[in-house]
Amino acid sequence: MPEIVPNPWRLQAQAQQVRSDTVIGILALQGSFWEHEAMLLRLGVGVREVRLPEHLDGLAGLIIPGGESTTMGKLAVEFGLMEPLRAFGREKAMWGTCAGAIFLSKDARRDQPLLGLMNITVERNAFGRQVASFEADIPVPALKVVAPDDERPFHAIFIRAPLIETVEPPAEVLARLPDGRIVAAQQGRLLATSFHPELTDDDRFHRYFLHLAQRAPAAA
C-alpha cells in the first residue's frame, strides 16, 4: 500500500542510496524507528519496518527502538510477534535501545511482556521523570572494533531511561556511567543500551551492531 504522504522523518532517510545486500529490520510498532532507519540508510544498509511476524523473513538483524515498552509489549502480543521475535533473537543479531533494552531483558520488576532473551534485569525510569532526562559522555571501549582511531567518548542521550541493574553471564557489561551504573550490555549478538544512539549523529553504535549482524553466528 503506497503511502499518501510519507512521514517526513522517514522521507529524509529514503533519499539515501542503499549499497549493501544486508537488510536490517526495525521493529516499527511505536517509537523512534524512523531515526534508526535514517542512521542505517546513511550507512548504506537496506532497512525494513517490522510490524507483523512475516516481516522478519530474510533479515540479518533487528533493532528494537526507543518508545514506551508497555505499548510495544502489548502490540507485540496482539500481533503474534513474541515467539517469532524470540526465535529470531536466538539466531540473529538484535539490539534494543531504551524501551528496546527493557524488551530484551528477562526482568523489569513489573508485569509486562518481555522477550527475556538477555541475561540482564532492568529498572524502568530509574533516573526519574522527564525533568531528570540527561545527556552525558561515556566511554565505550568496544566501539574500537569499528572505529580504532576514534578516541572520543560516546555522547549518550538518556530519556526517562532504564538502568541495567544486573548483568550475568553470558551477558557482559559494555558501558557504565562515570558513577559505575550500567547503561549498556552485550550477550553474543544481542545488544542493549539504555540510551539513544539514534538521536545523535554518531554512527559508531550502529556500525558496531552491523558488525555483529554480519559476522558468522559461530563467532558469537
Binding site: Q30, G67, E135, I159
Partner: peptide, 16 residues
C-alpha cells in the same frame, strides 16, 4: 533540560 532531551521524549512518543 536541554532542547535535545525535550524533543527526545517527543521522538519516543512517535507512532503512539
Amino acid at each position: 533540560g536541554s532542547f535535545k532531551v525535550k524533543v527526545g521524549l517527543a521522538q519516543m512518543l512517535k507512532g503512539g
